[in-house]
Simulated assay, not measured.
Amino acid sequence: MKILIIEDEPALQKNIADFFRRRDYECVLADCLDTAMDRLLYGTFDCILLDISLPGGSGLELLKDIRDQRRKEGVIILSARDSIDDKIAGLDLGADDYVTKPFHLSELNSRINSLIRRKHFNGSRFLLFNELKVEVQERQIFVHNQPVTLSKKESSLLLLLVANNRRIVSKTAIADHLSGDENSYFGNNDVVYSHMKNLKKKLTEAGCTDYIKTVHGLGYKFDCHETEHSKY
């Protein structure tokens, strides 16, 4: 999963990024309004952590722009302001959650996981596609109830495809999703092909049907009817 951390306090930004990178999230950073707008111009994210008070402008203005553009990212506001008026303003503008500083990173992690499940997986904790089981929060993969060891990039790629089940995901979107802060990924179809090849190989060697289809000239598609899911 890929998150954008918009926070101007260096120590807090680093603590958040370190915490989530240890949990295999791709973290992209911005410390002011202009940088945040630039990150959003060239990337898409599963979740945005948004501070209200930013150098160059208000995080609420950025939130309004995000929703005016009909972007689908989940947004969690991080703010030292604890007034009910600020919370109402943020939620009314389209924030999915509001967390008051100081906060525990473990709580923030739970809120992000819950948001991502709601946004991309209809709240499900696991998804089952015949012999393939995807545990969303833990990002663990099983084939015929046996765990499959994937790299961080490979598991992120599989979750992206599953979240867009039966829809084409372009190579450009995949490269962006895998990039994190690694600019060399942008537009690099060779890197996309390498990760895709490794993912498909590991799944088929584990006995999984090849549900990932190449759509020539467009991208890739995970193509399988979901057989079961669980919110528990």
Rank of each mutant, 00 (worst) to 15 (best):
136 V>P: 00
138 E>W: 04
140 Q>H: 12
140 Q>K: 15
140 Q>G: 06
141 I>K: 03
142 F>R: 03
143 V>G: 01
143 V>A: 01
143 V>C: 02
143 V>D: 02
143 V>S: 01
144 H>N: 09
144 H>G: 04
145 N>P: 03
145 N>T: 05
145 N>V: 02
145 N>G: 08
147 P>F: 11
148 V>Q: 03
148 V>F: 05
149 T>Q: 15
149 T>D: 14
150 L>K: 14
151 S>F: 09
153 K>G: 11
154 E>H: 13
155 S>A: 15
156 S>P: 06
157 L>V: 10
157 L>Q: 03
157 L>W: 05
158 L>F: 13
159 L>A: 12
160 L>E: 07
161 L>C: 07
162 V>G: 00
163 A>G: 15
163 A>Y: 07
164 N>W: 02
164 N>T: 06
164 N>D: 10
165 N>T: 02
166 R>Q: 15
167 R>T: 11
167 R>H: 09
168 I>W: 03
168 I>D: 11
169 V>I: 14
170 S>T: 15
170 S>M: 05
170 S>Y: 06
171 K>C: 13
172 T>S: 07
172 T>C: 06
172 T>D: 10
173 A>T: 06
173 A>V: 03
175 A>G: 04
178 L>T: 01
179 S>R: 00
179 S>E: 05
181 D>H: 06
182 E>R: 14
183 N>W: 07
185 Y>K: 03
185 Y>P: 06
186 F>G: 04
187 G>M: 08
187 G>R: 08
